[in-house]
């Protein structure tokens, strides 16, 4: 599903992440690691948010640099700590991202209902709590027809009921549409009830499989 080769990410000349080779099969992959271990850097790099050296290819076909549009059409990302312009509403942001990601008709409304965003649909994000911001970021990350969704700390600040609905949705997307997921969490992921395809440890600038 996702192939990473010779990836090096550096900040101001200091290498923070090195991934010589990594092959992720379709499914749900869990990445764990302490604070500052490089999980978010890795996720942002895979999402195309950060410049890097190396190759990242989706489905042996879409290379992030060679096919920047096709790749981004299929790879979505939800930030750990989302922040949006305080005058924009969920409607503004979902409209913009949905159009760019070619979201099918009705998808925005369905996701807004499931994640509970519809209750504050036209409120400016400046009035949101951190949990509401999180719900909105998850909604944006599920728009379109992604093949891979990166969820950075999806459980943080999310209420229990919404978390349960989110994991039902992930399970459904995995089973019915073969969407793959990469997620990080400092919480116990076994409580999510998701069947993990692979678990990975991020630390000291490298990624290794967990037994």
């Amino acid at each position: 599903m996702l192939t990473v080769a010779n990836l090096t990410k550096a900040y101001s000349g200091r290498t923070v992440l090195t991934v010589p080779a990594l092959l992720l099969s379709p499914g749900i992959h869990y990445f764990q690691g302490g604070n500052g271990s490089g999980k978010t850097t890795f996720f942002r790099t895979v999402a195309g948010l950060l410049p890097f050296a190396g190759q990242i290819t989706l489905d042996d076909r879409y290379e992030i640099s060679r096919d920047p549009v096709a790749y981004r059409m299929r790879v979505n990302y939800a930030e750990a700590e989302p922040l949006y312009p305080d005058f924009l509403t969920a409607r503004d942001l979902a409209g913009f991202v949905g159009r760019a990601k070619l979201a099918p008709a009705g998808q925005v409304d369905t996701l807004a209902e499931i994640l509970g965003v519809s209750t504050f649909w036209t409120q400016p994000t400046g009035t949101f709590s951190s949990g509401m911001l999180k719900k909105l970021s998850l909604l944006l990350a599920l728009l379109g027809k992604p093949r891979l969704v990166l969820l950075d700390e999806p459980l943080t600040t999310l209420d229990v009921a919404t978390a349960a609905r989110l994991f039902d949705l992930i399970r459904k997307l995995r089973d019915e549409q073969e969407v793959s997921f990469m997620l990080t969490s400092h919480q116990d992921v076994s409580l999510t009830g998701l069947t993990l395809t692979g678990s990975w440890q991020v630390g000291d600038g490298i990624i290794t499989p967990l037994p």
Binding site: R44, G48, L49, P68, V69, R72, Y84, K101, L140
Partner: peptide
Amino acid sequence: QFEQRYLLLLANLPLSV
């Protein structure tokens, strides 16, 4: 600065150059 701070997701959108 505005986009780096509030619209990080822009870089993830499938928009051509």
